[in-house]
Amino acid sequence: MTALTAERLTHLERLEAESIHIMREVAAQFRNPVMMYSIGKDSSVMLHLALKAFYPSKPPFPLLHVDTTWKFREMVEFRDRRARELGLDLIVHINEEGVRQGVGPFTHGSAVHTDVMKTQSLKQALDKYGFDAAFGGARRDEEKSRAKERVFSFRTATHRWDPKNQRPELWNLYNGRIGKGESIRVFPLSNWTELDIWQYIYLNDIPVVPLYFAKKRPVVERDGTLIMVDDERMPLEPGETPEYRQVRFRTLGCYPLTGAIESDATTLPEVILEMLLAKTSERQGRVIDQDQAASMEAKKQEGYF
């Protein structure tokens, strides 16, 4: 972004500069970093910042998508198209053992599915390629336990996070020193809020998955949540028929675990307007967070992003 005439950065410029600084530190301090690419709006912003940070070079690390095989089809199309357009190295990792066992959200429930196809799969991928640093798009405003996590967040050789024993993080000095097998999760968007993300997408014209915009989509209502019937793997209850409703998504994940909201917001400004007026925070659409108050903290300790 261009600077204001007065020599002062706007809040988005300050956030952008901070994220770029963090990314360059990672490129310089680590041997084999990777950027987690989850295809959502935060990943889109993170990727855009990476393009800026290293311009005119390409980002000096690959993208990694941990594919649970239950992502929305539009997400997968978007992912492949963006990687191709930008000429970036994209690694897609699937937990084949989980696939062989037929693990999925309908047969095994959200907790087992998320653990096997997401958390375990992520650890497999990190081990397989020997990545020593992994960027994630998490923000501190998303959830209470995230608010305490460091920008450079240390993980043991078994990928565990110890919230009570985090490295102090001062000024803009990031300590990326690790021992064999240990790694660092890096959160360059730590200080961004959901509104910052959307504003930045708007100002920089960053492409996002069309699922964020309202459209008639086939959905069924289950326990008050609208679930999109994205493919034939979704078992319908007796008497349940998908109906077409004008819906969109505030957050994207596995389609059986992601609630849609009814909306008429078909453009970016309308999406932002709707968000400003929204009465529910974005993670509410994620079925996995609602289990218990401290569930995210527990999952993060296990190695979840």
Partner: peptide, 28 residues
């Protein structure tokens, strides 16, 4: 009025554009 006004899409777009413009100058 806090309720989304879907029938006023053009208005909304103009409002939000004006709003976003005003937000650009904010510092931290």
């Amino acid at each position: 009025d806090t309720s989304p006004a879907p029938h006023q899409e053009n208005d909304s777009a103009a409002q939000i554009a004006a709003y976003l413009k005003s937000q650009e100058d904010k510092d931290l």
